[in-house]
Nucleic acid binder design. Sequence first.
DNA 1: ATCGTAACGGCACTGAGTGCCACCGACAAT
DNA 2: ATTGTCGGTGGCACTCAGTGCCGTTACGAT
Lengths: 246, 246
Amino acid sequence: MSEAAAAPKPRAGRTAHGRRKVRSALAVAALDLFAEQGFEQTTVDQIADAAGVGRRTFFRYFRAKEDVVFPGHDERLAEVVERLEAADPTASPLRVVGETAGMVLEMYLDEPEVSLRRFELTRQVSALRDKEIASIDRYQRVFARFLRRCFSDQPDGELHAAVAAAAVVAAHNHVLRQWLRSGGQFDARAALQEAIGQLDQVLSPQWPSGGAVAGDDSVVVAAVRTSASPGVVLKQLRHSLGELED
Amino acid sequence: MSEAAAAPKPRAGRTAHGRRKVRSALAVAALDLFAEQGFEQTTVDQIADAAGVGRRTFFRYFRAKEDVVFPGHDERLAEVVERLEAADPTASPLRVVGETAGMVLEMYLDEPEVSLRRFELTRQVSALRDKEIASIDRYQRVFARFLRRCFSDQPDGELHAAVAAAAVVAAHNHVLRQWLRSGGQFDARAALQEAIGQLDQVLSPQWPSGGAVAGDDSVVVAAVRTSASPGVVLKQLRHSLGELED
DNA sequence: ATCGTAACGGCACTGAGTGCCACCGACAAT
DNA sequence: ATTGTCGGTGGCACTCAGTGCCGTTACGAT
């Protein structure tokens, strides 16, 4: 069959556009073959043949066979770092991180079909899953570093930064998984927004950071309507405030 | 008794004790060589030779070269699953998970010298770091699954389970890193205990879980001492009562 | 039209991981 | 003690991922 593709014989990688074509051709060929016959069963030779390039060229575009499945993480990570460095210092750090996570989420949402195929693959092939987890952890590290700087003046600031970063990433992963499982129907943006809002409430103002003065002797009285019995609510409340003695 | 040495010539792997010896010899030889000349620069042949066994035998004890650095995760994960399944259903789920994380922490604390060497290796070799991250993620998944069951009756229970699991793991990793950086001097147990306590306060009692009878019009007024700001407490409380429209 | 450059293809090599099989030490049965 | 079975072992051979090297050649620049 004659190849209508980009790089049948001639050099294609001289121009930036040509390089993108080759890269894309390799990625498409790889995903097709992976879906057809599995990841381990597919050799790099087959991918290169299917894309119409030499085996050696494959490794010029992707460092490893697994990398062909994740074509965007490195660039996104650079963007994330950039964005965090340029973030508004007066905004809530957790909001900033949450919005940055939203940017990462957008990367998946931008190409639903690719994301869904990748999801299917990562569910089946543990090597790919591990690779993706490692990538996600890099985001988390960057988030934690940013938050560590923001919280550096607070007691247990490092612990908080680590926990908050993990929480944001977990929320991101959770809405992403829901979106993937729904086949792209779920409104992931709104869900992440909502989740980040909750996390911001719970994790941000933990220690006197903003206004929230309050000495240790302040007494707070809360009144709400509820269907639970007063005893249960009081017990809950007492527990939630750290099991203070009486 | 047979020979005192590990496995110079004769068959050693027949008895369970012998197998442990061989496994240990391989691990020790591997760590020595890794420290001496680096991970990538060390071949499996060298490890096998140093341990006095054939190359093929190495792969009978460890599925891959990287696995020789992590000799315990699989078993620990099984223990973790077991422990969570047998956990007291009335206890705070987050406490249970926290204590289970403490069990994992104990695994590192049990053999400080091994943990420290491993730490040094994982800092330098990205392949090992990725592997460890993947292992840790498996714990996190198990934690999340457990918490998901506990929170299944609550709104956003799945999200909460994911976030709480991530938070506990982040706290565990944080105190572990402190301990490792301190060279084993830091009191990691106490730090984890403390961190889990804080997380339990913040993340656990979000929703009423107990009996909760009572009519729908009862008004409960609770008064407690707290270091958190009244706004936070009220917001928490309102949310914990299910976002009643008022 | 010519030159220089850089991507390409291909060859060869190392090393991880696997299948296969002959070997032999341990142990049980006779 | 001899025999037979069992299973861990060692080694050979193989596939395949990833890398270094180099001659080739298309493409852009002058």
